[in-house]
């Protein structure tokens, strides 16, 4: 690789790789800050393989070789394991940056990922002012949804659709995923409608997130990122609980990787400037 040559030529890419617990995301920017390619794949048990795989997928899409990556920022839980990376930056900072690119007016960010959820407060430049994360358990995360969906024998999408048909309010009070699962099973055995249970689960996640939002202090507009942002049931539950409208990009999962790629571009320029 020949990345550190400061070149005048405006070709080359800036990579952001976000290795999350459930999915791995990659975004490649060019000098014009345009997304050239992006990809999302499930994170496998061996992170190295997953990273290789996503790089290959990206470079199959009509780009020059991997050597054209000028700077790469890795983020997410697997950020230490990305050999290609010039720098590791946490997903908090990257999500903040990514959101700033898509919604420059955003003040608060909710990111619900596979194994953690976080609320980030940002300034006008997309710099992090403060952040809170959920406790180490899976309550209020994507994993929580997966576990419950599995016990209802539904896909997450099905659960989201069903939750919107809920007619009767029931409560799932457990924050603990395992206990919530057993609560759900006992609700099912009592003959409670699955749609009502699904809605209760969404409210349970919303409660958790609203708590985090209030700890930081709600500033509008609020943007939601991460895989769960595609789950309309959960989004609606949070909107209802906070009594606001939430902004969501078309591809909320890619936000972290996009932010990482933008930081990569910025770092490259800083470095080039300092050399010159």
């Amino acid at each position: 690789m020949n990345k550190n040559n400061a070149q005048d030529r405006k070709d080359g890419y800036f990579a952001g790789i976000d290795v999350g617990s459930t999915t791995t995301k990659m975004a490649l920017l060019d000098f014009e800050k345009k997304i050239r390619v992006s990809s999302i794949i499930p994170t496998g048990p061996i992170i190295k393989k997953t990273v290789d795989k996503i790089i290959n997928i990206c470079f199959e899409k009509n780009l020059n070789g991997i050597d054209d990556i000028k700077y790469c920022v890795a983020t997410g839980y697997g950020r230490e394991i990305v050999d290609l990376a010039d720098e590791q930056i946490t997903e908090i900072t990257c999500h903040a940056k990514g959101v700033n690119v898509i919604f420059p007016q955003a003040k608060t960010i909710i990111d619900i990922g596979g194994q953690d959820s976080k609320v980030i407060s940002v300034d006008d430049n997309g710099s992090v002012l403060s952040f809170v994360m959920n406790d180490k358990c899976a309550a209020g995360t994507g994993r929580f949804l997966e576990v419950i969906a599995r016990s209802l024998e539904l896909s997450i999408d099905e659960m989201a659709t069903l939750s919107r048909q809920s007619k009767k309010r029931v409560e799932v009070s457990s924050m603990c995923t395992v206990f919530a699962e057993s609560e759900v099973i006992s609700l099912v055995s009592q003959g409670v409608e699955v749609s009502d249970i699904a809605a209760a689960i969404n409210r349970s996640i919303a409660r958790r997130l609203v708590g985090l939002v209030q700890r930081i202090g709600l500033r509008l507009p609020l943007v939601m990122t991460g895989g769960v942002a595609q789950n309309k049931g959960v989004v609606k539950a949070i909107e209802d609980a906070l009594n606001i409208d939430i902004l969501i990009s078309t591809e909320p999962q890619i936000t972290g990787a996009l932010g990482a790629a933008h930081i990569a571009l910025k770092r490259f320029q800083e470095r080039r400037d300092s050399i010159e």
Partner: peptide
Amino acid sequence: QAMFIEVAEAEG
């Protein structure tokens, strides 16, 4: 009681 507990926890 849940509402009040949530407010206290949200405060930190």
